[in-house]
Design a protein around this nucleic acid. Structure first.
Lengths: 120, 120
DNA sequence: GAAAGTACTTTCCATTAGGAAACTACTTCA
DNA sequence: TGAAGTAGTTTCCTAATGGAAAGTACTTTC
């Protein structure tokens, strides 16, 4: 007689697993949290602003990640009719719902650093 | 005159960015959140239990991810002296501090699903 | 003594992620 | 007229991710 899954066999757990996959799928990659964090902080920023603010990112990655975020309605892209054409990126209302998650992420990272210093 | 970073130029923001990188570095990969979530739910589980509970994971990935998590003191590995040798994996006290983060992740994923159904 | 269960490890392979650098295209300022 | 700023795109490359399948090693049950 083969053993079967016990814990995950309930619909509730299957759904929770799927929820984790959904979130991580949308927020995958090295830069999405950084972009969102910067945008939450800075309200409205241009492409070159983001390139300067986010240390280490290249224009290809920034462009691609912004497209992903826009596709998922987390970031808005507005072309302004200014003299040298500029584009304004901002977090959408829906994107702002990620703030608590990013906050938890940051808090945990800070605590982790401190725990290394404290215990060693 | 070249423009310089304005928002991220403060030490506070540099540290926040680093915190995000730290957390995502430790929790990187397709399976870490699933393993931790299952382990938080199931308290103590053997290798084969986890293999059965986590839908889609293979033994190589499970083994590797568990080693990563153990190295970062998020999961404990205890070899039991039972008849057929068994190993007990459990979330450490420190690993349990990730519960709020995993919770936020899950909540956001659930809300995302609902927003798609609701708006479309 | 063969099957099945424990816990992994190893090999081999395909896909993806991501970085560097160059390039497009258009505008304004000196 | 050329330098610099706007916002990207394209190409080329390497390294990392992760999956399938088989193998190791040891034990217990039928």
């Amino acid at each position: 007689m083969k053993k079967k899954s016990v814990i995950n066999d309930t619909p509730a757990c299957q759904i929770r697993m799927q929820a984790i996959s959904d979130t991580m799928g949308i927020l995958s990659g090295k830069w999405k949290f950084h972009i969102l964090g910067t945008l939450i902080e800075g309200r409205k920023l241009g492409f070159m602003d983001l390139l300067r603010e986010i240390d280490g990112i290249g224009s290809k990655m920034l462009s691609k990640e912004l497209q992903d975020l826009e596709m998922n309605h987390l970031v808005s892209r507005t072309v302004m009719n200014t003299k040298p054409i500029t584009v304004e990126y901002a977090v959408t209302e829906y994107g702002a719902t990620l703030a608590p998650l990013i906050d938890e992420l940051t808090k945990w990272g800070l605590a982790y650093r401190q725990s290394i210093h404290g215990s060693k």
